[in-house]
Design a protein around this nucleic acid. Structure first.
Lengths: 218, 218
DNA sequence: AGACATATTAAACGGAGGTTTAAAACAAAT
DNA sequence: ATTTGTTTTAAACCTCCGTTTAATATGTCT
């Protein structure tokens, strides 16, 4: 049993290797379709490692989700590049761009987008944490920006509908990516492409919000 | 002919019972997580029935998808209630409302919305047909409406971006329904609610489109 | 009635998946 | 060097799934 020469002595612990490999597999295939044997093969560890270091497959998934979400908001904070004194327009544009980068970042090891998209569309028990710690604060922040456009008398349904309009335009590119790739094969998601898409959504939304603000004031 | 009491001795053929049961199971759980034994139990037929009447699980799924999509477009055609002579505004509003009804219709046996959402986010080999026969024609029709606003000189990227903005606002309510239910538990999807949401998306989008049309003309 | 195609059924097959086990390897401390 | 606790390993276990089989039932036509 001493014929193991593949790696001799990395310092990376097995647990960490499993987390990294599992993140990619879960992001690409979802919880149910991913198999423990796929994960341990990619991590180059034994089949029993998952059940030893984590209790079972579900616990591993939950740990992966927590880890991925913690790092994504650190990398692209919602208020990136703006100060409290910035204009509402600047805040909105920054929110939209950072949102685009967050969900469509394709740099290596950025599996946050696919992971969250899967969790939203096909929730596991881990969704509650996701909503409480990430999505609700994000929505509240967007609403605070929108209130600056719509005035303090704006009704909650109007605020929510506008927030949905902004976020929906962005998430479309994530949730429908397979379809978009077929309908529009030339579309890519490099940094510059995302900035162009973000600018479109910003201009489109700004006009929509201002029109509804004018309507509400009447 | 679809809604019938479950009765051991009805004249409903096994094949039809399988289609109905499979539609619900696939819509609720997705292709991979659904099992043949779940489907045949709900249909009250033998385990071998799927492989006898359809060739295998994948073919059954593909038939389910085809059947569900055929009926939904018949029920809510994209141009419902408008004539070729209608104004662009009327066409756009009709397109948005029919889209909302199509993806969020909650009448019993309406599993089209969840089915398509799953297929878009996590495609099987059936996606190709879906794109060619349903989604591409739908997109072309929306583009033809948008061209009436943006002028014949509008670039393809601008048209596509506007189409994405319109469709994205609608699909948000479908793809993120689990999250929306947690953030905004009071939101319901009765016919009147969908008409209100459609009106919001229409007004929001109309302002966005007109602003971009003005910008493009400059 | 008999003959023939079509449907249905219970049972089993083969494979894959998550998990467990028990032995071996390793590390640190005595 | 021996002990002790932790980690890794190969192998097996057991369940569930999609599919097949071979026998039985159900019609249909003459």
């Amino acid at each position: 049993m001493v014929e193991n020469v593949i790696d001799a002595g990395t310092t990376e612990r097995t647990r960490q290797k499993l987390l990294v490999a599992a993140t990619e597999v879960f992001a690409k295939q979802g919880f149910k379709s991913s198999t423990i044997r796929q994960i341990v093969t990619k991590a180059r560890v034994n089949v029993a490692a998952v059940n030893y270091h984590f209790r079972d497959k579900a616990t591993l998934y939950s740990e992966v989700l927590k880890f991925a979400l913690g790092s994504i908001l650190k990398k692209y904070p919602p208020d990136m590049g703006v100060t409290p004194g910035s204009t509402p327009e600047q805040k909105l544009e920054a929110f939209i761009l950072s949102f685009f980068l967050r969900v469509l970042d394709q740099s290596s090891g950025a599996w946050h987008g696919p992971l969250m998209a899967r969790e939203m569309a096909d929730p596991t028990s881990a969704l509650d944490d996701l909503v409480d710690h990430v999505l609700r604060p994000l929505g509240d922040y967007l609403n605070s920006i929108l209130r600056e456009f719509l005035g303090s008398t704006a009704t909650a349904p109007l605020l929510n509908a506008c927030a949905a309009s902004v976020v929906g335009q962005i998430l479309f590119y994530r949730h429908c990516q397979p379809v978009i790739a077929k309908l529009n094969p030339t579309l890519t998601y490099r940094r510059e492409d995302l900035e162009r898409l973000a600018r479109h959504v910003y201009e489109f939304s700004l006009a929509g919000i201002r029109a509804l603000a004018a309507g509400a004031r009447r």
